[in-house]
C-alpha cells in the first residue's frame, strides 16, 4: 500500500512536469516531425501490449489463449466500430465474455 502512495506521488510529479515543460520551455522550439509521430504511436503500442497480456496465458513452455477475454475483446471491437459509443461497447464485451465463461 505504501508503494501505491509512492507511485501516486511520482505519477503526479512526472505528469505535471511533462505538462509544464511543454508549456514553458518547448514553445517555439522546432521538433522533428518523426519524433512527433513517434510520441503519437507510443500509446498505441502500450495499450495493445496490455490487451495481449490479458488475452495470453503463459504456461510451461507454451502459450494459451483466454477464450472469454478474446471473445470479449472481439465483441467490443465490433461494437465500437458499429455503434461508436464507449460505455455500451464495453458492456457488450463484458457480457459476451461472461456468456462464454459460463456456457463454454
Amino acid at each position: 500500500m505504501l508503494n501505491h502512495w509512492f507511485l501516486i506521488g511520482f505519477l503526479s510529479v512526472t505528469t505535471y512536469l511533462s505538462r509544464i515543460i511543454g508549456l514553458e520551455f518547448m514553445a517555439g522550439q522546432q521538433m522533428s516531425p518523426t519524433l512527433r509521430l513517434y510520441f503519437q504511436y507510443v500509446p498505441i503500442g502500450i495499450i495493445t501490449a496490455l490487451i495481449m497480456k490479458q488475452v495470453l496465458i503463459p504456461g510451461e513452455g507454451q502459450l494459451s489463449i483466454s477464450v472469454p477475454v478474446l471473445v470479449g475483446c472481439i465483441s467490443t471491437a465490433i461494437a465500437i466500430k458499429v455503434i461508436k459509443v464507449f460505455l455500451p461497447s464495453v458492456a457488450i464485451g463484458v457480457l459476451f465474455g461472461l456468456l462464454v465463461r459460463h456456457f463454454l
Binding site: 511533462s18 511543454g22 514553458e24 518547448m26 514553445a27 510520441f39 507510443v42 500509446p43
Partner: peptide, 25 residues
C-alpha cells in the same frame, strides 16, 4: 514491477510535451 510502471507512465506522458508546446501561445 514498480519500475516498469514508472517507465511506462513516462512514455505515455511524452505526448504532453507536444500538447504544452502547442498550447503555449
Amino acid at each position: 514491477s514498480f519500475g516498469s510502471v514508472l517507465i511506462t507512465s513516462i512514455l505515455l506522458n511524452l505526448r504532453n510535451l507536444l500538447y504544452g508546446a502547442g498550447l503555449a501561445e
